[in-house]
Amino acid sequence: MAMGVHSHKRGRNAKRAPMAEINVTPLVDVMLVLLIIFMVTAPLLTAGVPVDLPDSRANALPQDEEPLNVSIAGDGTIYVGESAVPQGDLGAALATASEGVACSEREVVLRADKTLDYGRVMGVMGELNLMGCNSISLVTNSSSDSI
């Protein structure tokens, strides 16, 4: 019982003093479950477009500011952030997503499905280069296997 009433005297006129005990075990249990839920779901919130990334042994690069995310899904659809871009409108979508910051001053993170043709990925990288995006990072899954 979390709170009870104790009495030192017996009978009708005995004064009852409240016992101030709080059981913190259920609180700790709930907090640990919430912590586990957040630890599991947090990595899933970083990328909105599901892409099957290739594996690589390269180390992650440090990031100072939020990069501009460009993704190419397995069917060849290009996404800027989480919104799909119609064929040929990559430049307009990048201008809208970069919020007035020139593409040459902002890092672009390119995520491409590993089942895509190499030429499709290089075509998108060429379009990004034509728009002035010269700092392009390719995202991969980490892997300990050697090539």
Rank of each mutant, 00 (worst) to 15 (best):
S144V: 09
A92W: 03
E21Y: 11
R120S: 15
I147K: 14
I36E: 02
N23Y: 07
T46E: 06
S144I: 13
F38T: 12
S137Q: 13
G4H: 09
P67E: 06
R111D: 00
A20T: 12
V30N: 10
Q63S: 08
S83I: 03
F38P: 00
A95P: 00
G11A: 01
M31P: 01
G76T: 03
R57G: 06
V33I: 12
C133S: 03
N13E: 12
A93K: 02
A17N: 09
T25Y: 09
V28H: 04
N134S: 15
G132R: 06
T115Q: 10
Y79P: 09
V70D: 01
L32I: 11
N134R: 14
M125N: 03
S104M: 04
Y79V: 07
D113R: 01
N13S: 12
G100H: 04
G11M: 03
D64L: 05
P43M: 02
N59V: 02
L138N: 05
Y79G: 06
S143G: 09
S142V: 06
M1G: 14
G126F: 11
A95N: 07
M131C: 08
S146L: 06
G123V: 08
E99S: 15
V40Y: 07
A17G: 06
V124K: 02
M3R: 15
I78T: 08
R16M: 10
C103K: 03
V49K: 00
G74A: 14
M31I: 13
N134G: 14
V49I: 11
S7P: 02
L34C: 13
Q87D: 13
R106K: 13
G123N: 07
V139K: 10
A20C: 04
N23P: 04
V30K: 15
D29Q: 15
V5M: 10
E21W: 10
D145T: 14
S143D: 04
A47N: 03
D55H: 08
L61I: 00
S137T: 15
E66F: 05
D29H: 13
N59M: 05
D113P: 00
N129A: 15
H8C: 06
P50E: 02
S98D: 07
G91C: 01
D113S: 03
G81F: 04
D29F: 15
M31V: 11
A102K: 14
N59T: 10
C133A: 12
A93N: 05
A14R: 10
S7R: 15
S146N: 10
D89Q: 14
V121W: 00
L130F: 11
V139H: 07
E127A: 15
N59F: 01
G81C: 05
V28E: 02
G123P: 00
A112F: 03
Q63E: 10
I37P: 09
A58E: 04
I37G: 15
P62K: 02
G74C: 07
R16V: 05
V33G: 06
D75T: 14
G81Y: 09
S83G: 09
P67Y: 07
